[in-house]
């Protein structure tokens, strides 16, 4: 397994201004695996997942310490191009955020940014991405209608398709189903499970059943005291975390004693 490490995190810390919110995180994330990040709300899960595509760069006065490597390259080194990084590391947000454009233009947005494609090639990419996101059958007859007319669940799968269209290798998902109904959630979960064949997926979720259902690895983050940064308490196979956690604090959280 060890030569299938996709992402290495070493002594990672994160600051908002002077306030340290994440500290001392070290973990290896495996290729073609679904890794869930769980923890009580406010513990920095979203901040942590935004580390991998450097979306945190947008926050003024934020600072990262330690090392985060993707395919062996420290992505916080000065000469790394965040644009290239974000092509490789796609992201799906908590609320579906399709552009107010047509379904077709939403999917084609990324490919058009990065290269000049012929019309046929672009159509092929759109169809292919929508198929992979299990949305093609529902929208193939209305590709040129506004994406905002889709239901919430469809919008979220569209956002996933949009990431697939830029050929990302890693997909970050920040509570992708938290604003959806149970049926849509089910569809998204099935989709995520299929995607792991070809992608490395990191998913933040506050829903422990969801983490247990879909992930192979689980990381538990916790802020133990107010004013202290959150730390990685335990990181292991999902099965082990949920059946036989190695840490008392994990057990407390899993069994619902706090959080």
């Amino acid at each position: 397994m060890s030569n299938n490490i996709k992402i290495k995190v070493k002594n990672y810390g994160f600051y908002y201004g002077k306030i340290k919110v994440l500290s001392d995180i070290t973990m290896d994330i495996e290729q073609n695996t679904i890794t869930a990040i769980i923890g009580p709300s406010g513990c920095g899960k979203s901040t942590f997942i935004r580390t991998f595509n450097r979306m945190n760069d947008l926050i003024a006065n934020s600072k990262v310490t330690g090392e985060v490597s993707v395919d062996g390259i420290n992505i916080y080194k000065n000469n790394v191009d965040v644009v290239e990084l974000r092509k490789k590391v796609g992201m799906v947000f908590q609320r579906p955020n399709p552009f107010p454009k047509t379904i077709y233009d939403n999917i084609a947005y990324g490919p058009r940014l990065h290269a000049r494609y012929s019309k046929q090639k672009l159509e092929h990419i759109v169809e292919d991405s929508l198929k992979k996101a299990a949305l093609w059958d529902e929208v193939k007859n209305k590709l040129h209608t506004n994406a905002l007319e889709l239901s919430g669940g469809q919008q979220q799968r569209l956002c996933i398709a949009r990431v697939l269209a830029v050929n990302s290798e890693i997909i970050l998902m920040d509570e992708p189903a938290s604003s959806l109904d149970p049926i849509s959630t089910q569809k998204i979960e099935d989709l995520i499970d299929e995607l792991k064949e070809n992608y490395t997926i990191i998913i933040v979720t506050h829903n422990m059943q969801q983490a247990a259902r879909i992930s192979q690895k689980t990381a538990f983050l916790l802020t133990e005291k107010i004013d202290e940064p959150a730390r990685l308490i335990e990181y292991d196979d999902t099965n082990k975390i949920f059946t036989n956690p190695g840490d008392k604090r994990t057990e407390n959280y899993i069994t619902g004693r706090f959080g």
Binding site: R86, N97, L113
Partner: peptide, 26 residues
């Protein structure tokens, strides 16, 4: 909405591309 900016940047658009293709048309 900020979510449009984030979506575009997360897809690997530069700031300028985001401005021209997403923000200005809106």
């Amino acid at each position: 909405p900020d979510s449009y900016r984030q979506a575009s940047l997360a897809l690997g658009a530069t700031k300028w591309q985001t401005v021209i293709k997403v923000i200005l048309p809106q």
